[in-house]
Design a binder for these strands. Sequence first.
DNA 1: GACTTATGATTGACTAATCAAGTATATTGC
DNA 2: GCAATATACTTGATTAGTCAATCATAAGTC
Lengths: 125, 125
Amino acid sequence: MDAELGAVHGIGYTDFLILAEISSVVGHRLRAVDLAKRLMLTPSGVTRALGPLSKIGLVQRAAHDRDARASYVSLTADGERKLAETLPTAERIVAEAFDSALTPAARLTVLGFFERLGYASPGAR
Amino acid sequence: MDAELGAVHGIGYTDFLILAEISSVVGHRLRAVDLAKRLMLTPSGVTRALGPLSKIGLVQRAAHDRDARASYVSLTADGERKLAETLPTAERIVAEAFDSALTPAARLTVLGFFERLGYASPGAR
DNA sequence: GACTTATGATTGACTAATCAAGTATATTGC
DNA sequence: GCAATATACTTGATTAGTCAATCATAAGTC
């Protein structure tokens, strides 16, 4: 997962999730602490991940207008491009893991399950 | 997860899974490589985890009778006790994480899902 | 039966995360 | 308005895992 994504796109799976999460949120920016909650990471882990992402210019931080402790994280134009470029690879890798881990019957059950939870099945169009 | 289990019982979640996996398998012993496959770990990771578990006397290794490369891993009497003692804590922690991560409706859907996959719902008796 | 390839296990080097502690700012209650 | 408490973030130290390389033994092929 991490290894293949890293080899192809130069960022890990968590990095990808960070980009995707920022992009998915209204306003396209959020505080580091909210990023942590959404990704089930600690604030510390987010700080550590954002360092390199910021250095290679995929994300940027901006001061929060009402809270001097916090800062907003958002994607740069490069970050948006990287996300768009990485998405198909990530989807393929997840789909392969999914396929190899389950029997065909279990696969269908899981897909139905996600539909009931309100997610579109990744494979269905 | 790991932290609480470690604080209460002195072993991590992966350690717990290792004990549980050994105990669940017919014959109550398996090769390290099979342990790795079942727990989605690398053989390397299993070697690393078994070291401490063996040192504190929860698991033991025995030569494989047909393959000199392999060795069987099994629980000691202490290991069985530790597993029995850890099981309720682990179940409680998982149940709490499950409850806090999902809405009540999603919770029911997930439980139904596991039933369809052939697992009894943990909470149901 | 020797040669090649596959498998089981271990080790050194590394990495992505954690926790605990610390700093800075916000918020709350008196 | 000030003390006490809570929140946002960062950093040093640690940890649980990975990968790549290695060693030993098995299994398959000619």
